[in-house]
Design a protein around this nucleic acid. Structure first.
Lengths: 334, 334
DNA sequence: TCGAAAAATGGGAACGTTCCCTATTTAACT
DNA sequence: AGTTAAATAGGGAACGTTCCCATTTTTCGA
């Protein structure tokens, strides 16, 4: 099979300690030894065995990304696709491997992850305190990504949903809209619900009375439920002049349904989404939406986790809670 | 830290051999020993160390997926997203972890993968004989997914692009089209180019003369190059009545550009795509396209690889070359 | 040229498993 | 009860590294 340090040592006529020192550039060795070892290593096409290394250093060089989410195949979910992509890219560039787990694929993510002996985990969405504690108690650094609930004393990266939603609402006001609807999924599961709060606060600040008939809750975020939401709005005696959908998938589903029912967007009804998924710019009319920097979220999550993994013990020292700014992208749906 | 077999052995009052036998259910042991061991293991919240296991069994339980492709962040590339998703799902369900590598992220995928000591690899797209041989010579089972070139004596899963393309052409003929354009990317890199062959063969069979003005090559597959292709068609003295785009991204880019230039689809020009990416059904008009079963491709690739990994030595015994059927999905663009 | 300090090297334990081989216990049959 | 076979248990090497510690070699100043 593959050559080992022992093979190199034998051929180069030095001890395996010396070979190890040369190859990992750790400790003292003579130039002569270095040359011999590197030459032989090259000849034998030596590839270090990360498994053996992991055995003694107790670092595998792998991390896990777990999405605790109801949605089906999560990698194809348009909000997560770019996050996972940038996450893997950043990790790979730093010599880390990434395991992606989704709640539904696995009976007990904790068990599986623990067996794989990852050096750290990134947990997304619908996490809770017990899950986080399970990892922390095993001394596995935890980084949260867009957590639905607040967990104290834990690093996270999220986006500023409140201010993004405020921007969306201000923009609609500026366009002259007063009667504005709101749609969102995952109602009860979110302890933090900045999008909804911002919607209500914006109305209040503008002195517009909150009308609960204009607020629709769907139990899943998809284009299908977006269509249903549009139907619900069309059943009202009077349609709102604009709708703020707290997710692009809902927004696009709604646009489809409104168009199908003969309404024109944005003439008859204006739609604003949230997330800025890829489809938002491709669909016609292109969707005005609040852009979340998904690529940066993935990247920062990995960077911060790497920081935490490298400072063994006392990770609390480098706790970091990042809230990324969002930006309103104005397109054709408003 | 975590409890080990040795800890269990000490507390249960048996040898670590016995503990190992009980936990891995391999070899003989008494009921009494079993009970004691399992009880202690539970008490200590024992989690097996897969790293140590990998060290001795020489199986890591991990596989690598490598896309040799020009395109940028490959996980977000709509053709690959569902493939990677189903690949990871299938692997996870079979207790395998998946590392995803893309050519551009990594200087030398072979080196990295080899260091990670995966049990097998799935290689996609623009592979070549040397790459495949590099893995095979290290006794790492190789499974190809949608390979651009033919590699002898190697298992693969692909889709029947020739017959899918034929179906598309037949359908256009049936709709009365005679003057049909063709667009594709990655021209020179494909040794196998069934889509283009089918286009030409279909014309010939129908007795329509091949007109190379109606064939456009783009050097990258994206909506942007699709737009360019549409522009190129519009510069012709006479527009074809239909265009077969060998990729949905190109098709959608073209539709966008045609619409922007005031043409109506399918009234002024009909468009057929290939792949059936998610956007194909969402964009309006919804795209008629040749559906490739991407989910099944990912699943079968993993299943076959697992088969190969489990039969140590003599993998040639279970070589399998799978060509999945495609199906024409008729929507609104034709 | 000698001695001490510095530099380089080597030996071997450790990481947590598995698995082979040997030793012990138990069972079974005369 | 005695012999043998079968069942169970234990000891220890091995997997390929790293890293500590002891030993050897080199360097350099007096």
């Amino acid at each position: 099979m593959g050559a080992t340090i022992k093979d190199i040592a034998k051929i180069a006529g030095v001890s395996k300690s010396t070979v190890s020192r040369v190859l990992s550039n750790n400790g003292k060795y003579s130039n002569q030894a270095k040359e011999k070892v590197l030459k032989v290593a090259k000849e034998l096409n030596y590839q270090p065995n990360e498994i053996a290394k992991a055995m003694v250093t107790r670092k595998t060089g792998n991390i896990a990304f777990v999405i605790y989410h109801k949605i089906k195949p999560v990698i194809t979910y348009p909000f997560f696709t770019p996050i996972i992509s940038s996450l893997i890219e950043t990790a790979t560039n730093n010599n880390y491997g990434v395991f992606v787990f989704t709640e539904r694929d696995i009976n007990d993510p904790f068990k599986t992850i623990h067996e794989k002996r990852v050096d750290g985990v990134i947990l997304a969405s619908r996490i809770n305190a017990e899950i986080v504690e399970a990892f922390k108690s095993q001394n596995i650094p935890v980084m949260l990504l867009n957590p639905f609930v607040e967990i104290e004393n834990t690093s996270y990266v999220e986006s500023d949903e409140y201010s993004g939603s405020m921007d969306a609402m201000q923009y609609l006001f500026q366009k002259g809209h007063r009667r504005i609807g709101f749609v969102q999924g995952f109602w009860k599961e979110r302890y933090i619900n900045d999008r909804y709060s911002a919607y209500k606060d914006a109305l209040m600040q503008k002195g517009i009375e909150f009308d609960e008939n204009l607020v629709i809750e769907v139990d899943e975020v998809s284009m299908e439920t977006g269509r249903n939401a549009a139907d619900a709005f069309m059943r009202l005696s009077e349609l709102p002049s604009a709708i703020f959908a707290a997710s692009d998938l809902l927004a696009i589903g709604m646009m489809k349904q409104f168009k199908k029912s003969g309404f024109s967007i944005p003439k008859d009804i204006a739609i604003v989404g949230f997330d800025d998924i890829e489809m938002a710019s491709i669909y016609e009319p292109a969707l005005t939406t609040v852009r979340v920097n998904k690529e940066l979220m993935g990247e920062l999550a990995v960077r911060q986790l790497i920081l935490m993994m490298n400072m063994d013990e006392d990770q609390s020292q480098c706790k970091k809670q990042i809230t990324l700014p969002t930006s309103l992208v104005v397109r054709d749906s408003t």
